[in-house]
Write a protein that binds this DNA or RNA. Structure first.
Length: 478
RNA sequence: GGGGUUGUAGUAUAACUUGGUAGAAUCCAAGGUUCGGGACCUUGUGGUCUGAGUUCAAAUCUCAGCAACCCCA
């Protein structure tokens, strides 16, 4: 047990989640604050997680024919004005730079890159042979938030990927919009062990300028939903205003269809909130930069023997990204706590007793279970346990999500469900006025998504009692 | 957008009410003893968020700025 208040996380996740969350991010050395309000430093340990996410998704994109590229940070004001809905949607949070063009035109720092990219697309796309065009960029984004900021979850500058594709046909665009959303779901569930709800956004919540927006939503332990990624079918609106067209095989000019899709460093925030506990960060093995840490335990006379054996074990397990903590001057207990704070999935303790018994002690971060494992079985045991931790974390989160969804039949039930920090699954007509009203009356519940396989509608809208078009998940959200 | 709380070594704090030498801890550095769940001794480095004002004198009182956190929209 920690004796000093300032050593571990000093509040319980269940009692003060905002404070707990900040402490875990800071003390696990994922992130730090920076002097400009609403900005943050992603520290090496946090960035290592982002790199793992990038590695995973770069492979996915490569397999789908998406190329990485980079477009400028600065966007001319006139570009925003071309697509009215888009301009209106982003206007409140665009940051403008002081420097202007020689003609006096203002420049924005990109809040998203549709306009600057499609200017180029219009030059590059001439023929049906140029399609489909699939380009992604990894970059920083600036949205000058006025509401409260939170590490990873909401900051004025963040990192993301944005994919922008152009297709000859609507069908192809529809298919790939969904395909990329599906890849996001796989990333969240397989890599991050975070279950998600998948569906469409309502008209109120869709991306400014899109024909429709699809989304994956996760549900945090404090009862708030978190958008994990979105994929938009942009229709032909942007193509029209940016002059993107191609000559078809029929020798006629056509307007193409476009999609865009993105996820951000927010995923790291979701990762922290979903799995971690009162001892600090808990990382699913697949995303953990270090999966196994070895702690040697010795008195001075045993030191050489223990370290030799510890190095042998490290070598044997090197395919799991294993670290040997052989620092002098820290007791084993200190090291246990530190690596628990940083969420390393598996700990191996090796001391004189273990060497004698040809074994090591294996300790899981997710449930603290300790077990003696014979050296001959270690490789297979580590492999199995890492897999089991990954599955266990997903299952816990998935059970929580399932338990949190409450089917409601009227407004009173919806309101009650939101007050109890659950997700209400409600019949809904889809009108913006109704959604505004629900948000207002429930103290902030927004529609998270209309599931793709929405059950047959048999009821009336919870707000206006007209026949409902579909069922929608409502929850408060980050 | 509205309201509230807070800001003192790297961290977490004491002194603030009643203005008067910023003090213990921990971290960090050096040396020594330790080492199976946050060990200990000795020595050392390091601090009042920024800027104005009041005052002989400001960590303390006033104002503004900046930042963090919380609640509500």
């Amino acid at each position: 047990m920690a004796k000093e208040e300032n050593k571990g996380v000093t509040v319980k996740k269940s009692e003060d989640m905002p404070e707990w969350y900040s402490q875990v991010c800071l003390k696990a050395e994922l992130a730090d604050y920076s002097p400009v309000k609403g900005t943050m430093v992603i520290r090496p340990y946090g960035y290592a997680i982002w790199q793992k996410i990038m590695d995973h998704f770069n492979k996915v994109m490569e397999s789908k024919g998406v190329k990485n590229a980079y477009f400028p940070l600065f966007i001319p004001e006139s570009f925003f004005k071309k697509e009215a809905e888009h301009a209106k949607g982003f206007a409140p949070e665009v940051a403008w730079v002081d420097a202007k063009s020689e003609e006096g035109e203002k420049y924005a720092l990109r809040p998203t890159s549709e306009t600057i990219m499609y200017y180029s697309y219009a030059k590059w796309i001439r023929s049906w042979r140029d399609l489909p065009l699939r380009i992604n960029q990894w970059c920083n984004i600036v949205r000058w938030e006025v509401s409260d900021c939170k590490l990873f979850i909401r900051s004025r500058e963040f990192l993301w990927q944005e994919g922008h594709c152009v297709y000859a046909s609507e069908g192809e665009c529809d298919n790939e919009t969904l395909m990329f959303l599906g890849e996001y779901k796989k990333l969240c569930q397989d890599l991050l062990a975070i279950p998600v709800l998948m569906g469409k956004k309502t008209d109120k919540e869709k991306f400014a300028g899109a024909k429709y927006t699809t989304t994956i939503e996760s549900f945090m332990p404090d009862g708030k939903a978190l958008q994990m990624g979105t994929s938009h079918n942009l229709g032909q609106g942007f193509a029209k205003v940016f002059g993107i067209s191609y000559l078809g095989e029929d020798e006629k000019k056509h307007i193409p269809w476009q999609s865009s899709w993105g996820f951000s460093t927010r995923l790291i925030g979701a990762l922290v909130m979903t799995h971690s506990d009162d001892k600090g960060l808990v990382l699913p093995p697949k995303i953990a930069p270090t999966k196994v840490v070895i702690i040697p335990i010795y008195k001075e006379k045993d030191k050489a023997d223990v370290l030799r054996k510890a190095n042998e074990v490290k070598d044997k397990l090197k395919k799991y990204s294993v670290e040997l903590d052989d620092r002098d001057g820290y007791t084993p207990g200190w090291k246990f706590n530190e690596h628990e704070m940083k969420g390393i999935p598996l700990r191996i303790e090796i001391g004189p007793k273990d060497i004698e018994n040809k074994q090591v002690i294996l300790v899981r971060r997710d449930n603290s279970k300790k077990e003696a494992v014979k050296l001959v079985d270690l490789d297979i045991k580590v492999s199995e346990t890492l897999l089991n931790i990954q599955q266990n974390l997903f299952k816990k989160a998935d059970d929580y999500l399932s338990r949190s969804i409450i089917k409601v039949e009227n407004f009173e039930q919806l309101d009650n469900t939101i007050k109890h920090k659950k997700i209400a699954f409600a019949s809904f007509c889809g009108r913006v006025e109704c959604e505004d009203h629900i948000k207002d009356k429930t103290g902030g519940a927004t529609s998270r998504c209309i599931p793709f396989k929405s059950p047959p509608v048999d009821g009336l809208c919870v707000n206006c009692n007209t026949p409902a078009k579909y069922r929608v998940y409502f929850a408060k959200a980050y």
